[in-house]
Design a protein around this nucleic acid. Structure first.
Lengths: 339, 339
DNA sequence: AGTAGGCGTGGGAACGCTCCCACATTGGTG
DNA sequence: CACCAATGTGGGAGCGTTCCCACGCCTACT
């Protein structure tokens, strides 16, 4: 093993050993323009011999950049590590940042740790911030932007926001689902909607309404029940629907978990899926594959979302324009056996 | 919102506004010893007015510390976000670091991204490194230590390592399990062991042997089958055991997943659990609660492991002693219905 | 009354780097 | 043969902190 130097070698020492000036050594390490081969070789040898590693703090101090980007996930550890959605998004972000030569710094910040998080971010540890899954009314993105840090939010915080976010096109996806149900000849198409105060809830409902109109189906208020995205609430909502309108023959659920709940109720009620009632979910979560029957659902790609977030952030950082418009990602329908 | 300053305020500007010297302002922000109330108040007002945030790079440059610790998880995103074990460990680490006023920087590094990871770590971005779940023969910890960075590994890389790690006391835990089976009057106690080249595999087997000796039960080679920690391998191993020794009445499995596989085989073979055969697992994974019947298992606490890792790392950082002995965490038996 | 000690303070120096300007040294041109 | 441009180079300045030394002032001793 190499001897542990009491103090880490500096650029000056590298330059001295290589017999060149500090400037030349710096040029070799960075851009590398306009350096003679002789000098370059000497510097590279010296770096190898001393085991030199540039000091990030010193560099950041003068360049005012760190080449690192924070991914802040404002959720409890349990949820983060529970939902496969996060794995995909993190994978997409990681890959995109790696090919842009940026380091990913993942920060988990549940509510309790908010204060220290904000401090950390504004201290110029990172050049930009990706924010995931914050709860509706959070002002965190604006506060961070207030400190001059570019921010991109995954999923819109609320429907009004028009800048600096990447989200799945929920309206389009829900429309796809309804069009598909209509296509299958369903005439009484119900929805189990999500909470109205969440963007995913309200805009998927919006897409449902638009889809009905486009397919020339009437909108019937009795065919709308709201759940809270949990499996239980889906099961309950389905019971309500069957009671209100026994002739229901198609259901669009705002997420897969509620759809699984609905399937369960339908099975208990003796309705065949998809013969009697066709069911479509949203998300294409792993459970959609393993449910009985496997679920037709609107596919959203977390990987693509991660990559888009990075692209938007890099663009914001490059242009300095904090008001870049948000981006909507298209979805597609995955037809399985439930419809 | 506050006006966005073209350039962020510096300590010097704060000091000027407060009508004090740079030194005094610095003293207010840090330790705060020996500052008059008048000066302190003036500086604090100035900080608030300017929205001053200390520049981390500048501070790190002179103090040679960043007050940040990296948690490197050397696994694919899928596994990290799939295993509940990680959630617990990250939670423990997060809490421990927060109360020590250190920032947690989570870095996911699958094999492909190794190079840039090592660079990042040695560039003085963090003061110490916590390493999780690296594969057996990895030399990463030593290479990082070679750069003068303290490292603590979660789970021993291999049985020979005696420093800088925190691990569950597998030997003790396995002993507990066997003692329990003996206590239940089982006389033919078999084991479904893990791979011999993994620490968790070999040391749990070691504990099994010790447990037999302590309980005055003979060691019988025919009662040992190795699996690979998967449910399938557990099911297969159990079939082998039943075939070799139909009178087997107790089984210690090196992890819960294999235990679940064993339960499955036993059910198919018409053996009652626990009446005919008692089964004990290791890990206390969530599946242990939901299996049929619920699994008696050796509980290990990922939260405690995380906290211990942080404690050991902080101690290493404080003393500068990179050869602190590793720590073994005790386990306890959780008795459910499978024994 | 004179002095020793403490407390609070200001500001120079240093941390290790990049930026940039000025200075060779070359080769080619009028 | 003088001149200029291009090329490569060295090193000063400065990034925003903390550390530390030296200085003034006040209090409380001898």
């Amino acid at each position: 093993m190499a001897r542990r130097p009491r103090t880490r070698p500096t650029l000056e020492e590298v330059a001295a050993l290589a017999g060149v000036g500090r400037g030349t050594a710096s040029r070799v390490i960075n851009g590398g323009a306009k350096v003679s081969d002789r000098a370059r070789q000497a510097v590279e040898d010296a770096i190898a011999e001393l085991g030199y590693v540039p000091n990030a703090a010193a560099r950041a101090l003068v360049t005012r950049r760190t080449d690192a980007v924070a991914l802040v996930i404002a959720e409890s550890e349990e949820r983060v590590f529970g939902e496969p959605f996060f794995a995909g998004i993190v994978r997409g972000i990681g890959a995109a940042l790696a090919s842009a030569d940026r380091q990913l710094v993942l920060i988990l910040a549940d509510a309790r740790r908010r204060g220290s998080l904000e401090h950390y971010l504004t201290r110029q540890h990172v050049d930009g911030v990706l924010l995931l899954s914050l709860h509706g009314d959070d002002t965190l993105p604006d506060r961070i932007r207030g400190h001059g840090l570019p921010v991109v939010v995954g999923g819109r915080a609320s429907a009004g926001v028009r800048t600096g976010f990447v989200d799945v096109d929920n309206v389009q996806g829900a429309g796809l689902a309804v069009a598909h149900l209509a296509d299958r000849g369903r005439t009484r198409i119900a929805t189990i909607a999500g909470p109205a105060d969440m963007v995913a809830g309200s805009s998927r409902f919006e897409g449902y309404v638009e889809g009905l109109t486009a397919a020339d189906r009437p909108f019937d208020e009795r065919l709308v029940v709201r759940g809270d995205f949990s499996q239980d609430s889906g099961a309950r909502a389905m019971r309500t629907l069957l009671q209100r309108e026994p002739a229901v023959d198609g259901v669009f659920c705002a997420n897969d978990l509620m759809a699984v709940g609905a399937l369960q109720t339908l099975r208990e009620a003796g309705r065949r899926v998809p013969e009697d009632v066709a069911v479509v979910g949203f998300e294409d979560a792993p459970v959609a594959r393993s449910s009985v029957p496997p679920l037709t659902t609107v596919h959203q790609s977390p990987g693509a979302m991660g990559r888009e977030m990075v692209a938007l952030l890099l663009e914001t950082m490059a242009t300095g324009d904090m008001t870049l418009p948000g981006r909507m990602l298209p979805t597609r329908l995955v037809v399985r056996q439930s419809s």
